[in-house]
Simulated assay, not measured.
Amino acid sequence: MLLDHGSVVVCGALGRQAAPCICGAVSQSSSARDGAVSADVVALYGGVTFWETPNGEPVSMAGVTPQSTGQVRAAPVFTPEHPRGHGYAGAVTAEVSRTAVTAGAAHVVLFTDLANPTSNAFHQRIGYRKVVDFAVRGFGD
Rank of each mutant, 00 (worst) to 15 (best):
A25I: 09
R33K: 14
P117L: 03
D113A: 15
N116E: 01
I126S: 06
V92T: 04
A25H: 06
G47K: 02
V101L: 10
P66D: 14
H107D: 02
S30E: 14
V41R: 10
I22Q: 00
F111H: 12
V48K: 08
P76N: 04
D34C: 01
H107F: 08
T102Q: 07
L14D: 12
D4H: 14
T93K: 07
A32F: 05
V8G: 03
Q67I: 15
G56R: 13
A19F: 01
P76T: 11
A103H: 07
P58G: 00
G46H: 08
R98I: 10
G140R: 04
A18K: 06
G63L: 00
R84D: 00
A39G: 08
A36T: 11
Y128S: 05
L44E: 15
S29P: 07
A13N: 09
P76D: 07
E95L: 12
T49V: 14
F139E: 09
Y45M: 11
T69M: 13
Q28E: 15
A62I: 02
H82W: 12
F134Y: 11
G70S: 11
V42H: 08
A100S: 06
A19N: 05
Q28V: 07
A106W: 14
A103C: 10
T65H: 05
V96Q: 04
Y88A: 00
V131P: 00
V48T: 00
G85F: 02
A62S: 06
G46R: 07
E95T: 11
P58Q: 03
F78L: 09
G90N: 01
Q71A: 10
H82A: 14
Q67R: 15
F50K: 01
M61N: 02
A36N: 13
H86V: 11
V48A: 07
G47N: 01
G104D: 09
F111K: 13
C23V: 09
E57N: 12
D141N: 04
C21N: 14
A135W: 09
G138N: 08
P66N: 14
N120D: 01
P66R: 15
G35T: 01
F111A: 07
A106Y: 13
V109G: 00
A89G: 03
M1C: 08
C11W: 00
A75F: 04
S119W: 03
V10R: 04
V64E: 04
R73N: 09
A36S: 15
Q67M: 15
G56S: 11
E57W: 10
H86S: 09
M61G: 04
D113F: 13
R137G: 07
R73M: 06
A19Y: 06
G15A: 07
F139S: 06
D141R: 03
T49E: 02
Q71E: 06
A106V: 11
A94M: 11
